[in-house]
Simulated scan of single mutants.
Amino acid sequence: MPPIVHGFRTLTLCLPLLLAGCATHLDGNGPVATPALPEPVDYRVERLAPLPYTPAEWPESLEARVLLPETREDRLRPAALLVHGGGWQRRSPDDMDEIAERLARRGYVTVNVAYRFAPEYRFPAQLHDLQQAMAWIHERADEWRIDSDRIVGVGYSSGAHLVSLLGVSGNVDALSEPYGGEHARLAAVLGGGLPSDLFKFDDGRLVVEFIGGTRAEKPEAYRLASPIYHVDADTPPHFLFHGRWDGLVPVDHATDFHAELLTQGVESELYLQHYRGHVTSFLTRDSAIEAGIAFLDRQLREEASSTVLTQTPPTQYATQAPVPSSDLSVHADARQP
């Protein structure tokens, strides 16, 4: 094998390991320290055939992929609702399968869902899909031994946007009706590449087709669809990870949202991945997801002590986050994971 080819292959194999250590992990007190935590559990997992989670009268039949961990029969389990990205109009639950299995092996019942796509279906149709998914999970809580007070949302890109919006929807009547309610409440959110403020996008195609108009044409819809404007003390804790070089959803979406969560007294951790853009931050997500699962575990452990949860230590970093910005950013028409 020519030396240059061998060197390229070696770099390709090593790059994820090199990038894994290039991150900044912050909470409300600054850099996150590495706690002493027990070894993670690794449960066997039962994979159910895809199940429809929408009722017969729903505009489009949608399916969920469910994984059930083989945990002790006398204990309720936490659950995770997983939502894929794709600019609200492409991709599939395939993108979240690996994360779902990782969570299931840690003791979470995982529900990885499809949702309706823009531009055929516009906001808030996608939020209504997630609210229906939550109602469906609650209906099966006894059958699957789910602790319905410990359901978390996990997503990337537009999927992260939707689970975060679901997390704040209980605070806003216009978002919680007619499909919201107490069953839609999340205990915590793990979101990567999250578009938190749709006003920051310069009327790019994906956002305009999701909302059904420009910022000037539909300002109230943009405000309703932006999680950052609905944060209050009842907002669930958030773990945010984001690439510093993200040109599709610039990093100020994460830094500004993290700052607003903390201002409102909501627990939040921010995991900034250096030298990565929107796609590469998802492809090299391993360390961020591990730190995020540890965050979820801590939140759920505070809710109840009846379920054995994994504690996977995050890594300690010490560099400062970028200064939040109010500048508008350009929403490119690129593929999203």
Rank of each mutant, 00 (worst) to 15 (best):
residue 239 F to R: 04
residue 187 A to N: 02
residue 199 F to M: 02
residue 301 R to H: 15
residue 78 P to V: 04
residue 335 R to Q: 05
residue 290 E to Q: 14
residue 119 P to R: 03
residue 25 H to P: 07
residue 27 D to C: 11
residue 191 G to N: 06
residue 267 E to I: 06
residue 63 E to M: 13
residue 12 T to W: 14
residue 276 R to F: 07
residue 176 S to C: 13
residue 64 A to I: 01
residue 224 L to W: 11
residue 333 D to W: 14
residue 175 L to G: 05
residue 336 Q to D: 11
residue 230 H to Q: 09
residue 51 L to Y: 13
residue 47 R to Y: 08
residue 22 C to D: 07
residue 63 E to N: 12
residue 8 F to K: 10
residue 121 Y to G: 04
residue 17 L to G: 06
residue 30 G to K: 10
residue 295 F to W: 13
residue 184 A to F: 05
residue 6 H to F: 14
residue 43 Y to F: 15
residue 55 P to M: 11
residue 80 A to V: 02
residue 197 D to N: 15
residue 162 L to Y: 14
residue 283 L to N: 07
residue 38 P to G: 05
residue 190 L to V: 02
residue 88 W to V: 01
residue 58 W to T: 03
residue 79 A to H: 01
residue 293 I to Q: 05
residue 26 L to T: 04
residue 49 A to Q: 13
residue 217 E to W: 15
residue 220 E to V: 12
residue 170 G to D: 01
residue 49 A to F: 11
residue 123 F to C: 08
residue 238 H to C: 10
residue 159 G to T: 04
residue 243 G to A: 05
residue 71 T to D: 09
residue 274 H to V: 04
residue 69 P to W: 01
residue 112 N to T: 02
residue 301 R to S: 15
residue 145 R to S: 13
residue 120 E to D: 13
residue 241 F to R: 00
residue 142 D to V: 07
residue 331 H to Q: 14
residue 172 V to F: 12
residue 185 R to A: 12
residue 10 T to D: 10
residue 212 G to N: 06
residue 128 H to Y: 15
residue 108 Y to V: 07
residue 280 T to E: 08
residue 54 T to F: 00
residue 175 L to E: 01
residue 180 G to W: 05
residue 280 T to I: 11
residue 135 A to D: 13
residue 208 V to N: 01
residue 114 A to H: 14
residue 234 D to L: 12
residue 325 S to H: 02
residue 254 A to L: 01
residue 159 G to I: 00
residue 317 Y to V: 03
residue 77 R to C: 11
residue 291 A to H: 08
residue 32 V to G: 01
residue 240 L to F: 12
residue 312 T to A: 08
residue 301 R to V: 07
residue 185 R to I: 04
residue 284 T to L: 15
residue 281 S to N: 10
residue 155 G to I: 03
residue 142 D to Y: 09
residue 133 A to V: 09
residue 252 D to L: 02
residue 316 Q to Y: 13
residue 247 G to F: 02
residue 29 N to C: 06
residue 42 D to T: 14
residue 257 F to P: 00
residue 95 D to T: 09
residue 133 A to P: 09
residue 164 S to H: 09
residue 18 L to G: 04
residue 42 D to M: 11
residue 235 T to F: 04
residue 227 P to E: 05
